[in-house]
Amino acid sequence: MTRDHDVLEPLVRIPGVRAALLVAEDDGLVVSEASMTDVDTAAIAALSSSLWGKLRKTSVASGHRPPQLLQLRADHGALLVAGLERELLGVAVTGDTGNTGLVRLALLALQRDGVR
């Protein structure tokens, strides 16, 4: 288990979290992953980095600095993405009963403390 993987442990321990990943922001590739169920982490990485990139562009166009965290809420779950150091993204996917408040705090802690 790499140290990158260790940083994902607090996320996957939160009830309802189906997958937690570190993703390369530019490439949309999985750098490290910890999934609780059989989920397509490559799809999560590719799609979350693409969504992040579009929101980042919109944010910059509006005269603001890039975003720090996004939460997409849907019928059957949520996707949370946080910008981290080293052009990485912290990503978590929850089921519909997932505690997104705890996931948000864990991602903000990762943002604050770094991945190493």
């Binding site: 600095r65 996004l70 809420r73 849907a74």
Partner: peptide, 12 residues
């Protein structure tokens, strides 16, 4: 994830 309802973005 089903039908999305809301996207929240936090920035500085």
């Amino acid at each position: 994830l089903g039908v999305w309802s809301n996207l929240e973005v936090e920035g500085p």
